[in-house]
Design a protein around this nucleic acid. Structure first.
Length: 153
DNA sequence: GCCAACGTTGGC
DNA sequence: GCCAACGTTGGC
């Protein structure tokens, strides 16, 4: 079992939205590195840290799990979609996604600022300068270190 | 709203 | 294949 962090802007899709729908196709990822993590790295049952980005208090807000193998993101073929990709062809899809299933909300937001202060998280991809990946791997040690912060304060 | 950092595009 | 221009991400 592996661990991941997935970012979402709460204005667009929050942890509450995921709780409401239960399971959501993680569409709209248009970065090759992020796609490759979903396509080549993820397995059903993997752990996901749900992260709110581009908001007042960025940070980890909940837990989820990978709920499917990777499959083509249908929005790439839909001209009405914001995520439409005119170069994508159904016989050779360019963008893949996985389904993500709600796990639980954290007791509180573990903020980005806190993560930066945690020595055990040195080297964490999320915290590296200029890192903008919206889907990224988390080591088991990092996962544990992050969750250990939940009830510490 | 600003802007640093990064990815992508397209001319040459 | 280089690289300038442009677009996007996302913290602050």
């Amino acid at each position: 079992m592996r661990y991941w962090l997935m970012k979402s802007e709460p204005d667009a899709f929050s942890i509450d939205d995921l709780e409401r729908v239960g399971t959501e196709p993680w569409n709209g990822v248009r970065n090759y590195q992020a796609r490759n993590f979903m396509r080549d790295g993820m397995q059903p049952g993997d752990g996901v840290l749900f992260y709110h980005s581009n908001c007042k208090e960025p940070g980890v807000v909940g837990l989820a799990e990978v709920a499917s193998e990777a499959y083509p993101d249908s929005t790439q073929f839909d001209p009405q979609s914001d995520y439409f990709d005119p170069k994508a062809r159904p016989e050779q899809p360019r963008w893949m996604l996985v389904d993500v299933r709600f796990g639980r909300k954290l007791a509180r937001t573990i903020t980005l600022a806190e993560l930066r202060e945690e020595p055990k998280l040195e080297g964490f991809l999320l915290l590296q300068r200029g890192s903008r990946l919206s889907v990224l791997p988390v080591t088991r040690a990092q996962w544990k270190a992050i969750l250990a912060l939940e009830h510490r304060r």
